[in-house]
Design a protein around this nucleic acid. Structure first.
Lengths: 344, 344
DNA sequence: ATCAAAAATATAAACGTTTAACTTAAGATG
DNA sequence: CATCTTAAGTTAAACGTTTATATTTTTGAT
């Protein structure tokens, strides 16, 4: 037995045809329970394990889930990609006991990611696509819809046709954080936000404006910064904004990396958290509890949306309708530090 | 042209046989340059792209590189897996222009990872394996060697038969850091190290002992802690060790997450960095520059070993000998904060 | 011009699986 | 009892490629 057993081996062993063996293994009702048992027994005895290449060639099913990541600038010194990375684990974990595997596809730009998606779809290189980082009118999403290719996004779009997605409740996050700050007397609240082309960045900006408006506070465009959410970005923006004539007294950061950067800026400039200004953030690793000082955050463990991403993908491949596969997560507010004690 | 072109399509188009088309596409010397051009032209015209399932079934080549990750406890609140995650990107980036893709295989224990590897090898589910987190006498490595399956580890082993690996120069890192601390007057240096079963953890402990010995300093087992390198671990260990009758004046952390935890402990206990104690660490994200205060680290951007991991894999698949594919990276010391100003 | 050798191409089988179409036997129907 | 239906299998083809072997074409020497 030098060579790996196939259904042919089982067929020979049981005296059945390969067709019956195949049907038995796939639980077809066309085969008697009796014979099915015989087949399964033989399979076990011989140590049979299905060869997915055969299946793939015959049926087109690849058992691969493509995970698209767009990392614009792979600079060494930055925290980029950490968020994505954690995403992979949740999905991968959910797929653990299925024949599906997560396959990495890395793009360096939106355009390239579109190109990659086109090739995956056209050549059926995967059975489904998971796409984080959506745009409002995302052409990639439109394309996959048009081609009727299964996909789940991490992030919503404003497209008319519904699709499967998972997202955090951005509007809620922002109103929780901003209204809290306003209630405590903050009038100039900086918002360090993601790249403006991203859907969630836009949603947050809108919510930010609404919260200000509801409190009859003026909107100052200068207090909004968009960029790649790294510590470097946070620190630089702090350096800039803190030099304003009327500098912000609060920095609302779109993730914990950015918050760390702002706190680093505090340290460099001799700021004390809660004296000149405060930092509040969205967090999905809960690493902000280890900052010095720990800061208040809206916390949603990345594993949650990540796992649902995987679950939705499986259900999609099982034939469920995309419009039934949509979920928004509402993070918890975790109060930690004196984010309200700014003397104003 | 509703269906995707195959070599058959090209054969029909050019009037050649599929065999010749196949050879032409693969650059076989058996085909005349003239005909090859004709084939390539037709392929381009028709938009032909090879179907890897066919290749896979015929040749056994899967074009998949399995990346094994062992995440023992997938707790939400922790920074675990971040290191692995970054590894994927470098590999994936190097494979970008090849037909190979990185496929995630996630295990929750050493035993399970072994099981997974056995299945990948036995059923040729991948063309090669990348294995981070080696043990000294790693049975998984032995197994892959025995089965002559291509693999690259991130981390060395003490096995007799050489294999392809990438690693940081642990001995050097430790001696750089520890000797620096000793030179500045530190006598009690805590070492927050990885799980003791891991090869690099052992290597570092050995180097630590050597450095102490060279300086005729006593070795105190209490100053060494092993565990999962998270901020939580760092903080807890700090809490414990700082209560010793003779507490450490320096904490040497095996990664930046642990260092962050120790600094968090400092903050909680009202320590000031450089007064009661200092922190020094190994870093591969260079995120420690944003700590408050920034700390001195031995820095090796994770992208470097990560990319070499991918390169070695490609060369291995190209037939190069494993013993030629070994590389140790020496990190740079980045001096940042007053890690020497402890009054002792 | 002829012929052998070399070069280029063709034929056909194989990889492991699924599935449409077919066969056979047994059971149901009247 | 003849006929129809159903259940449970079988046969054979197909998915797209590579490659061993066979065949044809070209080349170059005589």
């Amino acid at each position: 037995m030098s060579t790996r057993p196939t259904i042919k081996t089982i067929a020979k062993d049981t005296g059945l045809s390969t067709a019956t063996v195949s049907k038995a293994l796939n639980g077809s009702p066309q085969v008697r329970p009796n014979t099915r048992d015989k087949v399964l027994e033989a399979a076990k005895k011989l140590g049979y394990e299905i060869n997915l290449s055969g299946v793939q060639l015959r049926t087109g099913k690849t058992h691969q889930i493509a995970m698209i990541t767009v990392i614009s600038s792979p600079h060494d010194d930055e925290w980029s990609g950490v968020g994505y990375a954690q995403l992979v684990y949740g999905v991968s974990d959910v797929l653990h006991d299925t024949p599906y595997r997560v396959v990495q596809y890395q793009a360096s730009s939106y355009e390239e990611s579109f190109e990659i998606i086109r090739r995956i779809v056209a050549n059926r290189k995967a059975d489904g696509i998971i796409l984080p980082g959506t745009r409002a009118q995302d052409e990639r999403v439109e394309y996959m819809q048009l081609q009727e290719f299964p996909f789940v996004t991490y992030g919503m779009t404003t497209l008319a046709q519904p699709h499967a997605y998972v997202d955090t409740h951005n509007q809620r996050i922002v109103s929780i954080c901003v209204e809290r700050l306003i209630a405590k007397g903050h009038r100039r609240i900086a918002m360090l936000n993601a790249d403006a082309v991203l859907m969630y960045s836009q949603a947050r900006e809108r919510a930010y404006c609404q919260s200000l408006e509801a409190a009859s506070l003026p909107f100052d465009r200068e207090l909004i910064a968009n960029g790649e959410l790294t510590p470097a970005f946070g620190r630089e923006q702090f350096f800039e904004m803190s030099m304003f004539d009327a500098p912000p007294t609060a920095y609302f950061c779109a993730n914990e990396a950015t918050a760390m950067g702002v706190l680093s800026g505090f340290h460099v400039r001799g700021y004390e958290h809660g004296r000149e200004a405060v930092v509040i953030a969205t967090d999905d690793l809960n690493v902000s509890q280890y900052f010095s000082p720990p800061i208040t955050t809206c916390y949603l463990p990345i594993s949650k949306p990540s796992r649902v991403l995987g679950e939705f993908m499986l259900r999609l491949l099982n034939g469920e309708a995309p419009e039934k596969l949509q979920k928004l997560f509402v993070p918890d507010l975790i109060e930690r530090s004196s984010d309200v004690s700014v003397i104003k």
